[in-house]
């Protein structure tokens, strides 16, 4: 049962390092442009496609670690069982939204792959299927994460009623 959480941590770490790599890319592009008048081609394309990808790659862990933004004004005022029911309701809605995302992204992903959809032109053509694929795969994963959170919740395994065990541990300390 811990496997998806570990995978979400690994994916998160990769995307976090990817963010730092973007900083390095920008650094290299500007230095290349100003010092050698040779910018790194495609920097902008890499950046904009990376940002969507990174945002989605980081979502599963955001669910497991209870980082998604919400208000607890009402939940704080009701007994634990009611809180658990509210959490389950919230997670089911989350599941619904991400099923909707899978539903609508799947055809655009397949289409993009089939017709070789791309953006830009000439030397800057960027295929769109990889990013659509990331959105698709991660949406499915987030759906799974919401389901698992419900399961963990009703087995009383959530820490502070919000985190899956092992999701929040610092990267250095293994659980």
């Amino acid at each position: 049962m811990q496997v998806p959480i570990k995978i979400s941590r690994a994916i998160h770490l990769i995307s976090a390092l990817w963010t730092l790599a973007l900083a390095a890319l920008i650094f290299g592009d500007v230095i290349g442009r100003t010092v050698f008048t040779a910018p790194i081609p495609g920097t902008k394309e890499i950046l904009q496609n990376s940002i969507v990808s990174i945002a989605f790659l980081q979502l599963p862990l955001a669910i497991y670690s209870g980082s998604m933004l919400r208000t607890t004004i009402f939940a704080d005022a009701v007994p634990p069982l009611a809180r658990r029911v509210l959490r389950t309701f919230a997670a089911l809605l989350g599941l619904l939204v991400f099923i909707g995302l899978v539903w609508s992204t799947l055809p655009s992903f397949l289409d993009a792959y089939r017709i070789g959809e791309y953006e830009g032109e000439g030397s800057l053509r960027v295929p769109t299927w990889p990013v659509r694929g990331v959105v698709l795969a991660m949406s499915a994963f987030v759906g799974l994460a919401y389901l698992q959170m419900i399961w963990l919740d009703w087995r009383g395994r959530l820490i502070d009623e919000s985190e899956a065990p092992g999701a929040f541990a610092p990267i250095g300390g293994q659980d």
Binding site: K44, E119, G120, G122, L124
Partner: peptide, 23 residues
């Protein structure tokens, strides 16, 4: 070698002239 911005299918006009197209 001059970097010139443009959107989409007109970028090859620049490549033919040796400019660097930026989407």
């Amino acid at each position: 070698g001059v970097k010139i911005g443009g959107a989409g299918p007109n970028l090859p006009w620049l490549e033919f002239a040796g400019a660097v197209p930026v989407q």
